[in-house]
Write a protein that binds this DNA or RNA. Structure first.
Lengths: 197, 197
DNA sequence: CCCTAACGTGACCAAGCGGTCCGCTTAACG
DNA sequence: CGTTAAGCGGACCGCTTGGTCACGTTAGGG
């Protein structure tokens, strides 16, 4: 599949710089950040970007893949935690406490353009579902919410905060706390619509 | 200020069709909907769009203004309601139960490019704050949330739902219910960060 | 009915986008 | 070293977008 002859030194260096720059630029500008800006930030030419990634979407996929893998391994680490409720809250905090836009983009990419990304996403979802089930069993969250609910609500704090102009960097914690309180069993009211697939 | 000589009949007709088409197109495509598409949908030429609104942002502002005014008048209607908690929930439902993207765009438009829009926004905010204060006094929501919190959380359900591909049209109600449960006093945990201005 | 000012329109423009390509540079191995 | 292929980069292409303009059309008061 992948002969993967090792990259030349300068190529590897540029690729790393490119990924860093792309992550930063996507985080700041949203996913309509231009390839030219990313290249400039990385200190390389635009052509070099397309040498490493055939298309802008592939570049985005690589950045997103990093992030998904990081979140998935964190989730797996947290599954056996003693306090399942705290573990879920910590995970949601890690998911929310990043820069804007990128966060749920891996959900949006519906079609299986990128197989590795699809696999990583599935693994992440499974880990999240396990976290949620453990938290439910422990009585830390209400029984009528699903893993999918948590996945969807995960980065709402981040999104919400993006609307306040000079937002303090920790403001998202406030909205995560409110939303998480909504996930707790105490005072839960019946939900008016079933959870999506 | 505004001499406002009445529009010619055809101009008024076109303007109305344009606003309708713009609202629909922005709702469906998000705010990157193209002016050409909007014009086509309205059944008029692209040039006519720019005759009525000097810039695309002005057109968007007009659409948003309609929406803000509608929400503001609904909020004012709801302020004296007997059940202040139910009134707030109904308002948040009305705010969420619209098409995607447009919802919080009026928050985003920071700079006072459009004076009328700024005024309408202020009025809307004041009405929401009144609703929230009444709900707090009635004990329907926790005392540590502010009007601004509600404004920010208002359309999160809508946003969250936009990530599930073939989402049922009422799915947002589920997430509004969860978030609203997080606003209730029952089982509320202390919030880790002060509310923004 | 007619004249004019208001209005409508589609060709047109400049800017920015993702993506391509080919001549130059340079890392790495014998 | 010297050779060579991998790597680099910026000019370039096709396309779309927001916005303009000169021209033809039409509403509507006199």
């Amino acid at each position: 599949m992948t002969p993967d002859r090792p990259l030349r030194a300068d190529a590897a260096r540029n690729r790393a710089a490119l990924l860093d720059a792309a992550a930063a630029e996507f985080a700041e500008q949203g996913l309509e950040a231009s390839v030219a800006d990313i290249a400039r930030r990385a200190g390389i030419g635009k052509g070099t970007v397309f040498r490493h990634f055939p298309t802008k979407d592939d570049l985005l996929a690589a950045v997103v893949l990093d992030r998904i893998d990081g979140l998935a391994s964190l989730a797996r680490t947290l599954i056996p935690a003693a306090d399942a409720g705290a573990a879920l809250l910590e995970f949601m905090g890690a998911a929310a406490g990043r820069q804007r836009q990128l966060d749920l983009s891996f959900l949006r990419e519906a079609g299986g353009v990128n197989e590795r990304l699809d696999g990583a996403r599935s693994e992440l979802f499974e880990a999240i579902i396990a976290l949620v089930e453990r938290a439910k069993s422990a009585g830390a969250i209400r029984p009528d919410v699903t893993g999918m609910d948590v996945i969807l609500l995960m980065c709402a704090p981040n999104h919400v905060v993006s609307f306040v102009p000079g937002a303090p960097p920790e403001l998202w914690r406030r909205y995560l706390a409110i939303i998480f309180d909504g996930l707790r069993p105490a005072g839960a009211n019946p939900l008016p619509h079933p959870s999506p697939g």
